[in-house]
Nucleic acid binder design. Structure first.
Lengths: 349, 349
DNA sequence: ATGAAAGCGCTAACAC
DNA sequence: GTGTTAGCGCTTTCAT
């Protein structure tokens, strides 16, 4: 069924070279010949072997996507955005999941990501060690980092600190003073992580408002059940209960809302909640949140990469020069979507 | 940094062939020589080009995963299970998202999946037309279908109809008679789909219990908000409200629970809910459900495929014979996890 | 505008 | 045990 290009050439009565030119669109072929070749290819159901093509051209028409989670809403959305953008441009997507375990990560970086199986890479939410960072960026293929802490090359990032600040200020403006922050778990609170940056924004806003003594930070697992459990602690004592919660993530925020309701605490009458993400569930919970349109991020990353790839001289033989074009650093905009989950506190202290 | 095998060979003072043997482990090499080669490879940081290797051997060490959704809990879990199993065995995972649109699907099937970029395929929840089915199965590479309607080859499936029946019978046994079923949307209700089969199980159980006249089926979008909205309708009228709901999916079930709580309906005192999936949120909602361990399904699919691949004679040149070994049809077991979301109805009609 | 031939990097017969 | 050689299927100079 799936013959080689020589079969197509034979059937069309031309040489392999001409068949190749006709099919790939590179180089001169008379319209009439092209037509004949295309017909021939169609009749025998020919599909070029991308492997052979890759070996010959040095380009794989595939890009590697490295992600730290597969089954979290944000990551899935980015992945989906990248997938469809790549598919539309004729590229394949090869998926790499980088687990938390350092030695396992090293193994993947060294053996899988060091090979020449893709033309470029996208990293999603990868918090890399210095060592991992260099391995990722030094392998000669362009990389765009979405989220995470990888800098120096192309990147798409939201300003997490500013968001943390804005979220907190939004609550302060509404009149809240007892504002708690549910963040990631300890290991994620180094400065240079999503949660660390959002926390910093919260602290700054609280400080600026003279609310330093009211600061209340609670670690949680980054998930809906995580938020649920954190809220169980947070809301236990009605006397010192916060009137507002800024959650580092929509999933956590929603967990908080669910827990609050189960405890008989009215949201938002007695407790205002704000998150960051634009999670698809946010609307259902009337959650105020910063929409960051993850699918758009995935698609944008693809645009950046493919633009660079098209510009590059086709690398045949010698490795292409280290990328010269300036790094594209996208400060991805977010949109604050105010819904009914944040209101003025009923009672001011 | 990343030289060719000839560089390694030169540095180790052997021929390319010997270097290859030493590195791949195929064929005889003296222990001493192997050591020298491995050293040489390490010093120049050599990683073999999988592309060249593929072209030569005919095996890509990659498998294609075709899925209908990326960002749904069940699919993400299966994907994660498959990913780690593949990674452990040295395989790459190339991801294909098959959208609902038929012509787009055809494009992907013809151009991407027809090429020889992977050794085998896994389909996750693909409901294929007759035409698509043959295209998927006829391309000479083994396929294991997880869920979906693709039969005739390897497959991993849960018995959806039996589950629908059991879920319903569980509720009947508890004493419920007004049992509603929230299912997929209309397009998904042909007999040969997950939702169709689960619906059939529900209908059968209701019929057997003489409750045909109490049958109440409500379509919903297969998601948490979908269940939420469906429940809004379903629970509106307190006078004819069901005492129990069998939801086709955990996500839908959870949506129903959330909606019920917001309406002031006590779960499970006034409304019992049961789902299917074993969603990670199920515990948090104390949802009674059939756990189907999706990660295990993904991993199992990989086992089946790799076993078949290892057995196959290495296909060099001519396409390998159509698979002869009998198809492995796994009837994946599920486990009913009874939690507090289903209880006896407070008041019997 | 087309064909002949070299070669991408590796592996596998086959000889030694 | 190791080297020589011939491809895998395609693209691309270089001639014509």
């Amino acid at each position: 069924m799936n013959g080689a290009i020589s079969d197509v050439a034979a059937l069309a009565g031309v040489s392999k070279a001409t068949a190749s030119r006709a099919l790939t669109g590179r180089g001169y072929v008379s319209a009439e010949t092209r037509e004949r070749v295309v017909q021939a290819a169609a009749t025998i159901g020919y599909v070029a072997s991308p492997i052979a093509s890759s070996l010959s051209t040095g380009r794989t028409l595939a890009i590697g996507v490295v992600t730290s989670f597969l089954n979290r809403w944000y990551f899935g959305e980015v992945l989906e955005g990248a997938e469809s953008a790549l598919r539309a441009r004729g590229y394949d997507l090869t998926l790499y999941h980088l687990p938390p375990d350092a030695s396992e990560r090293a193994r993947i970086l060294d053996s899988y990501l060091a090979n020449k199986r893709f033309d470029a890479m996208i990293s999603i939410g990868i918090e890399a060690s210095q060592d991992e960072m260099t391995r990722l960026t030094t392998n000669g293929r362009p990389l765009v980092a979405i989220g995470g802490n990888i800098r120096g090359g192309h990147s798409i990032n939201i300003d997490d600190q500013a968001l943390g600040r804005e979220a907190t200020e939004h609550l302060i403006t509404l009149g809240h003073t007892r504002i708690a922050h549910v963040t990631g778990h300890d290991a994620e609170l180094q400065t240079d992580t999503v949660h660390g940056r959002r926390l910093a924004g919260y602290l700054a806003a609280m400080g600026d408002a003279g609310l330093t003594s009211a600061v209340h930070v609670l670690p949680a697992v980054h998930s809906l059940p995580g938020g649920y459990e954190a809220a169980a602690q947070l809301l236990r004592d009605a006397r010192i209960r916060p009137t507002a919660v800024f959650a580092s993530t929509d999933e956590v925020a929603i967990g908080v809302i669910i827990a609050a309701r189960r405890l008989g605490i009215a949201v938002p009458a007695e407790l205002s909640v704000i998150g960051i993400d634009g999670h698809s569930y946010a609307e259902m919970f009337a959650l105020t949140t910063f929409d960051q349109q993850p699918r758009g991020q995935g698609a944008q990353a693809v645009e950046i990469l493919l633009e660079e790839l098209e510009d590059r001289p086709r690398a045949r033989g010698t490795a292409s020069d280290p990328a010269v074009g300036a790094a594209v650093e996208v400060h991805w905009p977010t949109r604050l979507v105010i819904r009914q989950s944040t209101t003025r506190p009923e009672s001011v202290d």
